[in-house]
Amino acid sequence: MKKVFSRPKLLKPNPFHYCPGCGHSLLHRVVAEVIEEMEADEIAIGIPPAGCAVLAYNYFDVDMGEAAHGRGAALATGVKRVLPDHLVFTYQGDGDIAAIGTAETVHAANRGEKITCIFVNNAVYGMTGGQMAPTTILGQPTTTSPGGRTGNRDGFPLNLSEMLAVTRGSAYIERTSVTTPAGIRATKKAVRKAFEIQLQGLGFTLVEVLSPCPTNLKMSPADACKWVDTEMVNFFPLGVIKDITAPQENHDAH
């Protein structure tokens, strides 16, 4: 029989601890496949976060060094400055990168650190149990924004990727989703492009991935995907936000 589907070589044979319908498992697979396809497994170094993906080192079969909550970009800076020819990526959730680690991320982007941030945005704090995230959308209820997030009381959802795009050091920033097969293909393409731009030494790269969290949205996996595609995208529109390698007219469009 011909084998048509298998575990990526760079995912360890450990069962995922993620909830059913969670986007992390899909995204882990995407990142592992890209590293494998680029034959970059010997130079890849991953920086897992504090958050749901805190155990990412149990899955990725590449060198990994765990960061404190929010400090991924700073830690990655240290690694990359010592090993400038390596492929260094952080894997961070919305609370990690867009709340407690905003300063580290903005300044790594502004210094043009040649690293890639994989930013998983699911609009809620997963690991701590469903509290409000910096990216929780208006009207969305969480355990710390009862009745739904309001701008006046809770502040507004933060568009970190758009913020990072205005820094002079960022080279490539794209927002995708893993809620549909097409979205997963686009995510894979974006991750590959970000890694390539990093290895070309052109600057800071980031892929923001909208991802469903059925457990904390209190929805079925299918409904959670639908919610991302119809509600969340209104605050976080998909597409390339910055790409310094694109032809000039495309670049001007943003």
């Binding site: 700073a74 690694v79 400055r81």
Partner: peptide
């Protein structure tokens, strides 16, 4: 590297030490 804060700089130290 002049970091943006003491917190960032000690975490850069962690990264360089890991490497």
């Amino acid at each position: 590297v002049q970091a943006e804060s003491e917190i960032a700089s000690i975490n850069m130290v962690i990264g360089a030490s890991m490497a």
